[in-house]
Design a binder for these strands. Structure first.
Length: 642
RNA sequence: GCCAGUGUAGCUCAGUUGGCCAGAGCAGCUGAUUUGUAAUCAGCGGGUCGGGGGUUCGAAUCCCUCCACUGGCUCCA
């Protein structure tokens, strides 16, 4: 007998060789029906795999992340089976589960898959799923495995096998399909009830752009048809909120082929929004002792040679521009930090000046590959809400915590409730990607890890995600549709001060090297606004929205009264406009609703007579009639709510 | 940059296997209407069918090429 510890701490005894599925059955039939996989001593296993020694077991169903991952990975195998049936000779790369669904990288030889082929594959998958084929695990020797795929002429799998150790190789089969796979898998195909192949994309074999490009098929499956429908509805909603669409409809920004791709042009309403965000942050930063600066859009190439940016990114950047007579070289500013280092270094600094906090809404230009550009979220010219804090080693932690506080305050003020932070450290296997000494890196990484551990913040740690000059703390927020986005960043940097030879004279009258903290709570105004648009579906917080109200006169004879109200509201810093068109009130309301103006003030005979306004809230409807001062009170209350 | 796809009026789209002056709705303009909580009516203007080249008696439609956009990949200071 073996002892099985369950998540609730209870220990049950089972015969040697009992599977997780059998354990589930012993608990309840219903549970057994839903089990997809199980963790055995922390490792995710097939539910059918026998357990031979004492273990702690956790059963996974569709409600667990691990259960979904198993389900989708098994679905990838089912898709591969369908592809092999429809397109014999198809070769397979890798087919993992992802956050939502799974993909499989395939090489269909001469046959190019098109979106029109996808329904056929879906149908085949559903047909095969009905066979209730079991996923069967088999341990194989490396030689046998290589022989199998050599016969199948699948060079991708053979390459994957080269990196695997003999004795640790397993195959999984279901129906007529066998794949190299370490598993685990769901019991059988019958739980795969709804299938949707989402899209086709090119993907380099092993992520290497020098190697062959395979076809990646993205897909998702569900145990219930209804869940697929709900998922597709969510995608529809995301499409409706797409910032590129809303940005055009609400006249926030535009792009022009003539100006150039990836170069956003801010229209008046978008500019209002952006400047309100900047003013808000500027005010908060000034409270905390930041000083604003303005630096030029170009900088001498030597500036970036000093910083190391040129060596790292020069070849893949916009190329230097030259002065016509002298032939001097200048780069479009890709970063503000070198300029700020020069500000720090332009005269001797005393320890009494530190921390010195230099802020700038600095517009930078970076060459991004054409296929990378995406609306406002990935552009070639953007404005960072940048600042650099120069401080002593002893001040690093305190300053870091203050920045952390500022950043979380900003995120919350923007209406994002869910956020986490990612600690991005060096990749220990690729030291050549980074500048600076190990001592500097260790100190910087330690500072971030220590400071974040002192605050109430959910963090994850990623190796290899650091900037080339220092580790980062990146903020990840979840939007209203549950999607994750990376926002602002805080970076601790011991290296640039060294490269720029920055110093301060300490209390001991000796020169010391300052530490630099790079930080941007929004990240970039462009990217942040793209996220804000999608999060709010264009219904911005009241304090931020370009027009807070629209006055809608029922006939043009009430325009003068509207003017009066407008002036009164302006006294309370409430901004809006009068819809003076000779349109029906129904039309005016509809248009204003679509423009996401939060308040509509409808003015006709009754209102003019009683010196009142009829108030309608966007998306909610009629709030009734009130006096102008009552509206101001209502508005002011709502304003303070966010 | 790479793979796949898309590009017809400001927007959303129609345009049969290549064939009469390329269509619709919305938006715009003009006029009428003076309206009570999500579209008043009528008239008018608007397109070198993404650009260029080619095949053809004839191209929005077929081919080549360039550009932009979309979904991914790679990249992201």
């Amino acid at each position: 007998m073996i002892n099985i510890t369950l998540p609730d701490g209870s220990i049950r005894q089972y015969p040697k060789g009992t599977s997780s599925m059998e354990i589930a059955t012993s608990i309840s039939e219903g549970l057994a029906r839903n089990v997809l996989s199980a963790s055995v001593n922390g490792e995710v296993w097939d539910a059918s795999r026998p357990i031979f020694s004492d273990a702690s077991v956790k059963l996974f169903t569709w409600n667990d992340k691990e259960g979904k991952a198993t389900y989708w990975h098994s679905s990838a195998h089912l898709m591969a089976e369908a592809l092999e049936a429809l397109y014999p000779g198809t070769k397979f790369g890798i087919g993992p589960a992802i956050d939502t669904g799974f993909y499989y990288d395939v090489d269909t030889g001469d046959k190019t898959l098109t979106p029109a082929d996808l329904p056929k594959i879906e149908e085949k998958m559903l047909e095969l799923a009905k066979n209730k084929s079991q996923y069967i695990r088999k341990e194989v020797s490396k030689d046998d495995a290589i022989r199998f795929f050599t016969e199948k002429k699948d060079e991708y799998k053979i390459e994957l096998l080269q990196d695997l150790q003999d004795g640790q190789i397993t195959f999984y089969s279901q129906g007529n399909f066998t794949d190299l796979c370490k598993g685990p898998h769901i019991p059988d195909t019958s739980s795969i009830k709804a299938v949707k192949l989402m899209n086709l994309a090119g993907a380099y074999w092993r992520g290497d752009e020098k190697r062959k490009q395979m076809t990646r098929i993205y897909a998702v499956t569900f145990p219930k048809a209804k869940e697929l429908t709900e998922y597709l509805e969510l995608l529809e909603e995301a499409k409706k909120r797409d910032h590129r669409k809303l940005g055009a409809e609400l006249e926030l920004f535009m792009f022009s082929e003539k100006v150039g791709q990836g170069l956003p042009i801010w229209l008046p309403k978008g500019t209002q929004l952006r400047e309100r965000l900047q003013n808000f942050l500027r005010a908060e930063q000034e409270k905390q002792g930041y000083q604003m600066v303005v630096t030029p859009h170009i900088g001498s190439k030597s500036l970036y040679e000093t910083s190391g940016h040129y060596a790292k990114y020069g070849a893949d950047s916009f190329q230097p521009i030259h002065t016509p007579k002298e032939g001097e070289e200048f780069l479009l500013k890709p970063m503000n930090c070198p300029h700020h280092c020069e500000i720090y270094g332009h005269r001797p600094r005393s320890y009494r000046e530190l921390p010195l906090r230099i802020g700038e809404f600095g517009t930078v230009y970076r060459y991004e590959q054409s296929g990378e550009l995406h609306g406002l979220s990935r552009v070639r010219g953007f404005t960072q809400d940048d600042a650099h804090i120069f401080c002593t080693v002893d001040q690093v932690k305190g300053e870091f915590l203050k920045v952390l506080e500022l950043t979380t305050m900003v995120i919350k003020k923007m209406g994002f409730e869910n956020f986490t932070a990612q600690i991005s450290l060096r990749d220990p296997d690729n030291p050549e990607k980074y500048i600076g000494s190990d001592e500097n890196w260790n100190a910087a990484e330690k500072a971030i890890i220590e400071a974040t551990s002192e605050v109430d913040l959910i963090t994850t740690t990623e190796l290899g995600e650091a900037a080339f000059y220092g580790p980062k703390l990146d903020f990840m927020i979840k939007d209203a549709l549950g999607r994750s986005w990376q926002l602002g960043t805080i970076q601790v940097d011991y290296n640039l001060p060294e490269r720029f030879g920055l110093e301060y004279i300490g209390a001991d009258n000796q020169p010391h090297r300052p530490v630099m903290i790079h930080r941007a709570p929004f990240g970039s105004m462009e990217r942040f606004i793209s996220i804000l648009i999608e999060h709010t579906a264009g219904k911005f917080p009241l304090w931020l929205t370009p027009d807070q109200y629209a006055l809608l006169p029922i006939s043009d004879k009430w325009i003068p009264y509207c003017e009066e109200i407008k002036q009164e509201l302006a006294k309370h810093d409430i901004r809006g406009f009068i819809d003076e068109r000779a349109e029906s009130i129904g039309r005016k309301i509809r248009d204003t609703e679509l423009k996401r103006v939060p308040y509509m003030l409808i003015i006709g005979d009754k209102e003019a007579e009683n010196q009142s306004v009829s108030v309608r809230r966007q998306g909610e409807g009629d709030l009734g009639t009130m006096s102008v001062s009552e509206f101001v009170a209502h508005f002011t209350e709502k304003l303070s709510e966010v």
